[in-house]
């Protein structure tokens, strides 16, 4: 299952909720304001590192670049473009947008 997050983890609990509910084998894609969760030095960094042990974590690269943080991506988070987003939606059986 693909879990799509679009909120900064510092202003919204959607990533926390996703990490609580998502089951092993799930994949997480950070888009829009959720890309901040994938940047080093962010207060959420330890949580995302812990989550990376359980889930494959992706970030939408154009959103990261737009926000001036392409050089702060946490190692191990996989950048994808919109085509990669489509591939993730296709390869997973279903997806939940944590709006």
């Amino acid at each position: 299952m693909l879990h799509i997050i679009n909120k900064s983890p510092l202003t919204n609990n959607s990533l926390d909720s996703c990490l609580r509910v998502a089951q092993p084998g799930g994949e997480i894609l950070l888009i829009e304001d959720a890309v901040y969760a994938a940047t080093s030095g962010n207060a959420f960094e330890s949580k995302i590192r812990e989550a990376m042990g359980r889930f494959k974590v992706y970030v939408l690269q154009p959103d990261l670049e737009a926000r001036g943080l392409a050089d702060r991506l946490i190692a191990g988070v996989s950048p994808v473009d919109y085509g990669g987003f489509v591939d993730l939606a296709a390869s997973n059986n279903n997806c939940q947008s944590w709006l």
Partner: peptide
Amino acid sequence: HQASDTAYLFCKAAIAKGH
């Protein structure tokens, strides 16, 4: 909100991939 932009770019990418 960015949702409409992201949705549009997703659609374009999906079509480009033959979906």
